[in-house]
Structure formats: structure tokens, C-alpha cells
């Protein structure tokens, strides 16, 4: 076979060709990597029906003027803010009593009962909101909510005396004794007032489940499963000694609410703890998106909550 004169005799022709091919491949590879496009970000048009009725209201067994606020949800896509909903017809009934709400003329979107009224523990309240067209389809929409007002816990007595608390600090040790009944609350949210000023203290429920966390927004209340029976219980709280003096009024107040309200409050906290509902924390990015629950029907067209709960309280003037 004749030697290829392009190459010196001692050079292997095939090896040279392979080497040249390899160099060409490397050059092409580098060019490809630098020239070719990779990740692109594109604007995506999203068309949605994003108008939901937002309800924020409460009804208790306190004799006060009760309020409900109505809004139309804002849009994340257009930046349209939440807007008030005016002109709605609202009433609340437990089939015994009916309470009508009237829109406040000075504050549109705020609806209030005609004068003071109160609910009764153990009753189911039905809320009706009509005469509004949230989604602007020309048809009037209606929304409802059904909620049980739990029977409030009933305080028997409140004892207060100086002594060492659980952390071995000197303070005023208090015990608020109460009974809870069938159709009572699933959770209680307790807080302490000293001379009508809100005061944080250590609160424990010794006869309950023992699970306490103020940040969890409630103590699990003992469950009464048989109608007609009740459970005795007490809540223990302490106040540091320098705060309380003779003649001060110590008040212990509990909001009594259902597990549905507790669930809503917990979900609301979890979804807004960063202060910004839009997740940047890695733990938020590792979550399945979900909507905070609501008791407003129809689901999917409404948000917010109508809180129906009862209030219990006991007060005592402190003597040394």
C-alpha cells in the first residue's frame, strides 16, 4: 500500500485523522454550548374569574351591635385591590330569632345589626347574604353560612393568692374553675385582663389534654360526649408579683369556639406568618398550595369567615 505523503512515514494516519476529528468535535461542542439557548422566562397570560365574596364578621352571646364586612377579592393578576361590596341584604337567624343587618352609611361595606343583640349558646345560626352580583354576570348571587355557637363554659369561681408559680417565681397564682357542657366548645381562647388591660400570663389547663400553646390560638377544651352531663375543669394562670396590687381587678375571659374556627385561625396564621402572603421562605416553596378554609357557601366563590362563638368571663378584686 502506498504511503500517504501528507503524513511523515513514522506517523499513524488513522490516529491523526481520529485526533483531528476529536479536536473538531471539541471546538463544535464549545461553540454549541455558548451559542445555544437554555432557560427562557416568558410572560404567561392567565385568564380567570377571580371575583370572590370575602366575608369577615362575628356573632357572639355578648349584647352588643354585631358587624359584618363584605368585600370583593382583589386580583393578583391585575393588581386590582380588594373592594367593598355595597347594597347587600343580610340576615341571621336560628329559626327562633332573626337579626337583620343594615349597611353603615358612612362606611360602605360594613353591615351592622339594628341595635344590640345577642346569640345563645348551643344554637345553630344561619347567615344569608343576597342581592349582590360579585362576578358581574347580570345574575344576583346568594351566599350562606351555618355555624354552631358553642355553649359557653360556665365559671364557678376565681381564686387568687400570692405564691410561687411553676417556674419558681413569686407572683399571684390564680385558678378559674369552670364547667363545660355538651355542645360546648372544642377550643377556648383564654386571656387575662388586669384592670381591663390585656395581660399576658402563663395559662395552663391541668384537666384538659395538656396541649397548650398560645401561638396555636387555643386550648383544647375537655370533650363532653353525653347530653345533659358536664365536666369540671380549671385554668391556672400566674401574674408576676410586681404587677398586681391590692384592689386590682383580675379578669379571666375565654372565647369559646368550634374546631372549624380553630382550623381557620391556624391556617390563616400558617399562610401569613411571614407577613407577606407570597412565599419566599424555602419551607413555603415546599408546600402544596391551598386555600384557607371558609364557612361561606358556595365554596370556590367565597372566602373569609363568619365567626360564631360564645364568650365567658369571671372577675375578682384582688386582696393580699
Amino acid at each position: 500500500m502506498q504511503h500517504d505523503t501528507r503524513f511523515p512515514k513514522y506517523v499513524n494516519r488513522k490516529a491523526v485523522i481520529f485526533f483531528v476529528n476529536y479536536i473538531l468535535l471539541c471546538v463544535c461542542s464549545v461553540m454549541v454550548i455558548f451559542l445555544s439557548s437554555c432557560q427562557q422566562n416568558l410572560d404567561v397570560e392567565i385568564k380567570t374569574n377571580d371575583k370572590l365574596l370575602v366575608v369577615n364578621g362575628e356573632f357572639t352571646n355578648d349584647s352588643v351591635v354585631h358587624s359584618i364586612e363584605l368585600y370583593c377579592s382583589g386580583s393578583l393578576i391585575t393588581g386590582r385591590p380588594q373592594a367593598v361590596v355595597s347594597g347587600a341584604t343580610i340576615y341571621l337567624t336560628d329559626k327562633t330569632d332573626t337579626f337583620n343587618y343594615i349597611e353603615n352609611r358612612d362606611t360602605l361595606g360594613l353591615y351592622q345589626t339594628l341595635g344590640k343583640c345577642r346569640g345563645k349558646g348551643g344554637h345553630i345560626y344561619h347567615l344569608s347574604i343576597t342581592n349582590i352580583d360579585i362576578d358581574k354576570d347580570g345574575k344576583l348571587d346568594s351566599y350562606t353560612a351555618n355555624s354552631l355557637m358553642p355553649l359557653p363554659i360556665k365559671f364557678d369561681s376565681l381564686t387568687s393568692k400570692r405564691g410561687l408559680d411553676g417556674d419558681r417565681n413569686m407572683g399571684v397564682i390564680n385558678r378559674a374553675y369552670y364547667k363545660t357542657f355538651y355542645n360546648g366548645p372544642d377550643y377556648v381562647y383564654p386571656y387575662v385582663l388586669l384592670n381591663k388591660l390585656h395581660l399576658y400570663g402563663t395559662i395552663t389547663d391541668r384537666l384538659g389534654s395538656g396541649e397548650i400553646n398560645r401561638a396555636e390560638k387555643g386550648l383544647i377544651a375537655p370533650k363532653v360526649v353525653s347530653p345533659g352531663s358536664f365536666v369540671n375543669n380549671f385554668s391556672y394562670f400566674s401574674i408576676s408579683k410586681n404587677t398586681v396590687v391590692k384592689g386590682d381587678t383580675i379578669s379571666f375571659i375565654c372565647f369559646n369556639f368550634t374546631k372549624e374556627i380553630y382550623g381557620f385561625l391556624k391556617e390563616f396564621d400558617n399562610n401569613t406568618y411571614s407577613g407577606d402572603s407570597f412565599q419566599e421562605n424555602i419551607y413555603d416553596q415546599l408546600k402544596i398550595p391551598s386555600n384557607v378554609s371558609t364557612n361561606i357557601e358556595p365554596a370556590g366563590k367565597s372566602a373569609g369567615y363568619f365567626f360564631v362563638y360564645s364568650v365567658s368571663s369571671i372577675s375578682k378584686v384582688f386582696y393580699e
Binding site: 392567565i46 370572590l52 382583589g74 386580583s75 393578583l76 380588594q82 401569613t272 407577613g275 372566602a303
Partner: peptide
Amino acid sequence: FYVIEMWGKALSG
């Protein structure tokens, strides 16, 4: 796609 505001906090839906 939506946002609501309750108690001064924004909540996306």
C-alpha cells in the same frame, strides 16, 4: 389568582 385582606394581613388564594 386572588388576594384577600383580613386583620391587616394579605392572604393569597
